[in-house]
Design a protein around this nucleic acid. Structure first.
Lengths: 251, 251
DNA sequence: CGGATGCTTGATGTATCTCAAGACGTGTGG
DNA sequence: CCACACGTCTTGAGATACATCAAGCATCCG
């Protein structure tokens, strides 16, 4: 199942970059912080193919995963097959910093594209946390933001119209990807399918497709060849009723 | 705004009961744990009337609140007035254990009924955490459960039909209230209005009313005079596709 | 008594789902 | 090299679940 690659120290440094960029949006990191985090990424980088599960609901959580490249998602499903994506993991995100506390995973984690990630042992993590309270704070901050994003999604699915909801998701992804330097001007790689977008937004594939076209027709976005370009960010934000504050970026 | 009451040590002990019951569902608490928590609840108990805000989005968080009696909610709203309740607070719940880390609240907290709650200073909390790692673990556990409940709500609003969704919410509230000993057999006080239920479930008031009647007609629940009685728990759980594990109660 | 709050019901329109099919690109095996 | 399967996106047609608008009734309270 898992493909493993042992990587050298140099590649290691590259792999940790997204996380460092992300955390430094919240608060400055000094060299010791960076070194401590890099120290966690020892050994092996794991890989997973698109459309495979990284973890399943019910699994006993034992490791902490840090996504290095590709997109993954947290999802939950119902016995009859209905599925809801409850969050996206982008490079630099932890797929469950704290869940090893619990005895059983209450959701699944799936690779949406080919992904690469580190697995970190909780005890290694604990050492870093004990040694560097400042880092602990940054990590906790990130967890709180993740939780805030979930609340915003509830607002979106519960109250925003499909058009507003989709617009909102695009703006959110724009800011999150920009935080890890994966945005080029207003364009970024967008490797997931309309099917995934529908599952994340709680609507049918057909309707998602039509809503997407509405955003295109309105001149707000362009989406083709797995590339999303935001054409009119201000207007997209207005349509989405987007308020940046829930992401809690300082810079 | 706030009504304040200074309370004696005895009343204090009663007020902390829901929290102790809740945490002991996760792991056993010894006498020292209980004493440490009780020690936090010094001084004043605050009160708020139904339909008032306890905190507003954008506020700077400075205190940690522990709900002692009544029901409150976390909600978010849109500029045009649409409102989504993203979580209920029941007695024994903290309204934001960690949020004082962030500079700004990304959601509001409203009292649904008359409520009583303690305000705790972060530094007091920190002392307890530093002194009693076991308690820290229990509190973190509870935070993770809260986060898991949010995910379950996303699944509900995104994929469950209104009937399934409402059934699911009732079962969830049953278990949560039972955990703090507020359930009598299969019945409990249900002090919120259909309007609140609609806002929590992301549907219109009219449709919520009809869905409620459907549950009644199916012989699954009785709801009258602010009392909810679950008539057929097994069937209600089946309809809701309820899986208890996301609540992570051990007992 | 008058007003506020909460619950209920009816009528109507429409947003969204479901079912179905076609087009296009890509990879694969014969 | 062609035939075919598969994944993805797109479009059409029809059915319906749900929202909206509107009104009535009960209870409580000042």
């Amino acid at each position: 199942m898992d493909a493993m690659t042992t990587i050298g120290a140099k590649e290691n440094v590259t792999a940790i970059e997204p996380l460092l960029r992300l955390l430094s949006r919240y608060m400055p990191l000094d060299e010791a912080d960076r070194a401590a985090l890099s120290g966690l990424m020892v050994g092996t980088l794991l890989q997973r193919e698109a459309r495979t599960d990284i973890a399943r609901e019910g699994d006993k959580p034992t490791v902490i995963r840090l996504l290095v490249s590709g997109w993954a998602c947290r999802y939950k499903d119902l016995p009859d097959g209905r599925r809801q994506i409850v969050g996206f993991f982008l490079p630099g995100d932890f797929c469950d910093l704290n869940v090893y506390i619990l005895s059983e995973l209450d959701h699944s984690i799936g690779a949406l594209t080919d992904v690469r990630y580190f697995e970190i042992q909780p005890h290694q993590f604990q050492e870093v946390i004990d040694a560097r309270p400042h880092l602990t704070r940054a990590l906790l901050w990130h967890e709180l933001v993740t939780s805030g994003i979930q609340r915003e999604w509830l607002l979106s699915i519960g109250q925003r119209s499909p058009l507003e909801r989709l617009a909102h998701l695009f703006v959110e992804l724009y800011y999150r990807l920009r935080a890890v330097d994966l945005v080029d001007d207003l364009a970024f790689d967008f490797p997931i399918t309309q099917h995934h977008l529908a599952e994340a937004n709680g609507m049918s594939l057909v309707h998602l497709n039509r809503t997407l076209q509405e955003l295109r027709r309105a001149g707000l976005i362009e989406l083709a060849d797995r590339q999303l370009r935001i054409v009119d960010l201000d207007e997209l934000k207005r349509v989405a009723m987007f308020k940046r504050s829930y992401l809690h970026f300082n810079r």
